[in-house]
């Protein structure tokens, strides 16, 4: 699967971008040549030799902040996605197979999560688990998990009712067998599409939480935080939001490309499910 994705041009581009982003996440904080927290002489300065991207409203070097923030941003988004997948995908598949009680419970839970006011929940959880990035991202992951739950459930349901799955069951297949042999390859592409979506949401959410002081404390740099700060001073530095936006967008775009590539190499069954309603649910 991975090899087939890499053979496609879209797959190559997506991988290249994600590789750069990953490198930024790994080495970015080391590359930050100025202390991202240290205010300097001029505030809201334009680009110069010392500050290639200028300084922010506290006089901190913007480029350094972006570089230093990349690890938190990327790891944050990755964590959101991972939590959402584990909490969404597995119950999504099992809700079809584990009987009506489990199905009812998970469905209600998903509905509740969707209905819950996001910020109230986030504040409550951070109050409970402590105010830190992992806690906040965990919360966000839980909040977006209904997307994965629904996508997976819709796809699994479509597959579970198909004659070929019944044929396997009639031959004595276990649930595990059916999921491994028939369900998995078909739910993977819709999940990949949802994944790209969530990664994007993850970036944006990390920033809005930073803004509110939940999870990430304001001095700690993130891409979203830089963007939020820039947006506050548009009249002084109108071009400033471009770079953080570009970084976020490139990542989201790469994820989308990857989703497309996965869809292109996925089999008939998976393709049919992507165009089905589930993905948009």
């Amino acid at each position: 699967m991975v090899l087939r994705v890499l053979r496609l041009p879209t797959g190559k581009i997506a991988f290249a971008i994600l590789l750069v982003i990953a490198a930024l996440a790994l080495f970015g904080p080391l590359l930050a040549f100025q202390d991202p927290l240290e205010g300097g002489a001029g505030i809201l300065a334009g680009p110069s030799g010392a500050h290639p991207l200028g300084t922010d409203y506290l006089g901190r070097d913007v480029l350094s902040r972006l570089l230093a923030g990349s690890r938190i941003s990327v790891l944050g988004a990755a964590q959101v996605t991972l939590v959402a997948m584990v909490v969404g995908v597995i119950p999504g598949i099992l809700s079809v197979y584990l009987g009506s009680v489990f199905e009812w419970l998970t469905l209600r839970l998903a509905d509740t999560l969707i209905a819950l006011p996001f910020l109230v929940f986030a504040v409550a959880v951070t109050a409970l688990l402590g105010n830190g990035i992992p806690q906040a991202m965990f919360t966000v992951g839980i909040m977006v998990s209904p997307l994965f739950y629904r996508v997976t459930r819709a796809a699994t349901l479509a597959v579970a009712r198909s004659p070929y799955v019944e044929a396997a069951i009639v031959s004595g297949a276990t649930i595990g067998w059916v999921v491994r042999k028939h369900v998995w390859v078909k739910v993977l592409p819709p999940i990949a599409v949802a994944l790209a979506h969530t990664a994007g949401v993850g970036f944006v959410v990390v920033s809005s939480l930073t803004f509110l002081g939940i999870g990430v404390q304001p001095p700690a740099p993130t891409w979203g935080g830089v963007l939020a700060a820039d947006l506050g001073y548009l009249s002084f530095r109108p071009w400033a939001p471009l770079l953080p936006t570009a970084l976020i967008m490139a990542t989201v775009w790469a994820c989308n490309l990857l989703a497309d590539a996965i869809r292109d190499v996925s089999g008939e069954g998976g393709k049919a499910l992507i165009t089905a309603k589930g993905v948009r649910a």
Partner: peptide, 17 residues
């Protein structure tokens, strides 16, 4: 393997993947 089933719809009774 005492009993087996052949479905009506030849288009959907085999996994397309």
């Amino acid at each position: 393997g005492v009993v087996q089933y052949v479905f009506q719809d030849p288009l959907r009774s085999l996994d397309p993947d």
